[in-house]
Every structure is written in C-alpha cells, then in structure tokens.
C-alpha cells in the first residue's frame, strides 16, 4: 500500500543531460504558483552524461514532510525511449496509473516492448513524439520541455498557463524571446495532441 496516499508522485526516467531535472522543477514551480505543496529532487547518483537517471516530483494540497525517494509513483514519465531497454519504468505502476513515453510508437507497440522483458504492465501508456515536435517547431532536440504539455494534459496537476509562465521565467533571459516563443508553441502542441 502506498505510504503517501494524498500526494501525487511522479518519476521522470531519462538520461543524464536530457533536462529531466529542469522539467521536474518547472512542473513543481507551476504547482507552487497554484498554491500546492511540492518536492522535486533528482536521484542522488553520480551525474554522468548519458547514464539513466531518475527525478522525483511530489505534489500535494498539504505540506510534504517525507524525504524518502519515490518508489511507488502515480505516474512515470520516460524522456528517452531507449531507457525502456534497461530500466523497469513500469515498477509499482498499477492498472489505473499511467506512463508517458517520448516515442513515435503507438501505445500498443510500447506495451509490447515494455512487457517483452517479462513485465506485465496493464496501466495506461500515453506516447508523445516529443523529439519530433521539438525538432519540427523549435528546430532543436528539446523533449524535456515539450513533454511538460503532455504531463499537464494527462495529470492536470497545474494549468498549462502556469507551466508556460514558469518556462518563460527560467528561459526567456537565457534563450531570448524568439526561441522561448517556439518552445511555448511546442509545449502547447504536446498539450493539445489527443492520443
């Protein structure tokens, strides 16, 4: 049984350097803006570019006290499809919980892939081609921010406006107005896609 039943818990699976930590922080800050309590932290391992990483987000309507890592998430977000070959991303996800995967594949294709390693995952799978969207709209591979749109569409943990405003706050000064506009378009695109 989950210890923290009134806390929504997300695990981001990615590779070092793909920006999962940034994505987690944007989601958390957007939720804070809407009066929620949050926690966002990476799995504290060696930071090697390209190595599989986990990043955790907790969101709740009451203060969060625990400092244990998330082990029984309500949602998994997979930023890199190749992670499916090595990490048990379906771990502790039940039938009514869900997974978002950055992939061109269909939900059924992904389910076959996940279960081909011996798992029996029955929860929902929401594919989003975050790589494709980011390359088409931004002109660069930026799946970490694009996938925010999909997370908000599925989990409704914050309004898309709050996420975009957080994105602007962090990035506008760094990447300029034009690039920010494109990123925002890409987030909105992922948010609007029905899958």
């Amino acid at each position: 049984m989950k210890y923290n039943r009134d806390i929504l818990e997300i695990i981001f699976y990615a590779r070092g350097g793909q920006g999962a930590k940034t994505a987690a922080e944007i989601i958390a800050q957007a939720a804070v803006k809407e009066g929620r309590f949050v926690q966002a932290f990476p799995q504290f391992g060696p930071e090697r570019s390209g190595a599989p990483t986990k990043t955790f987000v907790r969101i709740s309507s009451s203060p969060i006290r625990t400092h244990e890592p998330v082990t029984d998430p309500d949602m998994a977000v997979v930023l890199d499809e190749t992670i499916l070959d090595s990490e048990n991303v379906m771990e502790n996800l039940s039938r009514n919980e869900s997974m978002i995967v950055n992939s061109e594949k269909t939900a059924e294709e992904l389910r076959c892939k996940i279960n081909s390693r011996g798992a029996d995952y029955e929860g929902k799978i929401h594919p989003v081609d975050a790589n494709g969207i980011s390359v088409a709209i931004i002109g660069q591979l930026r799946p970490n921010t694009v996938i925010l749109g999909k997370i908000i569409q599925i989990a409704e943990i914050a309004r898309i406006e709050s996420v975009i405003s957080e994105f602007r706050k962090i990035f506008e000064r760094k990447i300029g107005r034009e690039a920010t506009k494109k990123n925002v378009q890409a987030i909105e695109k992922a948010y609007d896609i029905i899958s």
Partner: peptide, 12 residues
C-alpha cells in the same frame, strides 16, 4: 542541512 536530501531538493 543534509547534503543532497535537503541541499538539492526543491521544497516549499
């Protein structure tokens, strides 16, 4: 503060 547990966790 606890290194990483607190130093690197975003909290309210």
């Amino acid at each position: 503060m606890d290194g990483f547990n607190t130093s690197h966790s975003v909290e309210n």
